[in-house]
Design a protein around this nucleic acid. Structure first.
Lengths: 217, 217
DNA sequence: GTCTATAGCAGGATAGAC
DNA sequence: GTCTATCCTGCTATAGAC
């Protein structure tokens, strides 16, 4: 991540274009021609910088997705620190805020979550990388925090499943925007996003068996 | 749906093969050649029966996905009837059971949910059809039931969002099997599926603000 | 490091025999 | 209604000039 920033500007443009297109349409549905057209360069540039389409896809994760995921994790830690007390409510709120309002622009967040939703549904080599470098350490970290804070008796498996329930909502509400808009009758304005965030926090906290506590965003 | 059963056997085989492949790989990633190879027929048969690839995709929804979704809805109603009292716990349980253990074979259910997950992430004309004929009426039906049964004061929007939270978990736990297995350390045996089902029911019931009630599957 | 040109192949779709 | 044979487009990937 340090050296890639010093490399060719064209390479950066290709990575950006590729990520946006892969997120929107999926690997197979995107053509290299489309990518270079968006990036404003020639088709041979992809081969020069990445060798082949597949390795471009993997490097999108390596140099774009993973660093961004680490920024989200860092935001979670900062949210937690700001909230002072490390209780369950604080953890869930810090999680939801980091993933739904966090350090990413709205566009970046959609791209980020869609790319992940695609890998979840159809894991590839990229997924292994993400599990190892991002998900496994983060899940471990959050589980440890939750384990200490949760009051109600709860075995390890229930804790893991509850965390996955929380992630499932975060992913759903940020990936499946169309059905959410359809059934709530609301467009994704910033006010509505805050409302969604509050809902996920409240629903999940109760789901974890914590009564109502702080409710402001 | 009545007349399609009387049509050519080849047409049925193509629909079956196409659905399985579209669910697994997505529209663009599947080739017509692959479909006819799986269906054991010739490539010209697709053109004869469906005109073009796109309309084959749409007819998969028309003649396979939608009828199956209606069977799941019917299972929900029967679950509800069996449970006797129409309280919130009964509704949530009937929902989760219909979608996660319901009338579909394990294979059918994965296919069904993956196809939906794909449409959610990238809605096409098929999604409009599904919204109109399946989702909108069903959401309306379940919302009405919930509205009558929920005790705690809850506005209409909160009710809709809570229902979506429940669906998000159902979809996640049946589509994202790999990460779920990874982080729980469990394979998707029938015992584990029951455990997941119980988790979703318990988490969602608490999420809706109902305390613990019946807990057997 | 970026381009043009092109090889080589796989895809969707169709014509026409049976 | 199902087949074989074929058209043509658009894809990835590379060779080679600049």
């Amino acid at each position: 991540m340090a050296d890639i920033e010093s490399t060719s500007y064209t390479k950066q443009r290709i990575l950006d274009a590729a990520e946006a297109l892969f997120a929107e349409k999926g690997y197979k549905a995107v053509t290299v021609r489309e990518i270079v057209k968006t990036a404003g360069c020639n088709i041979a540039a992809v081969n020069y910088h990445f060798g082949q389409k597949r390795s471009l896809y993997l490097q999108v994760f390596e140099y774009r997705w993973i660093p961004r995921a680490l920024r989200v994790q860092e935001a979670f830690r900062q949210n937690l620190e700001k909230s002072g007390s490390v209780d369950t409510a604080g953890i869930v709120r810090a999680l939801a805020l980091a993933f739904l309002e966090g350090p990413l622009s709205e566009e970046e967040r959609i791209r980020h979550n869609q790319l992940m939703a695609r890998e979840l549904a159809h894991p590839s080599e990229a997924f292994e990388l993400v599990v190892k470098r991002v998900m496994r350490p983060f899940i471990k970290e959050v589980l440890e925090l939750l384990r200490m804070s949760v009051q109600r008796p709860m075995d390890e498996q229930e804790l893991v499943l509850s965390l996955l329930s929380i992630f499932s909502q975060i992913l759903y509400f940020s990936s499946a925007r169309m059905p959410v808009s359809l059934f709530t009758g609301k467009r994704y304005t910033s006010g509505f996003r805050e409302r969604l965030c509050e809902h996920i926090i409240a629903f999940s906290l109760r789901g974890l068996g914590m009564g109502e506590e702080g409710e402001e965003c």
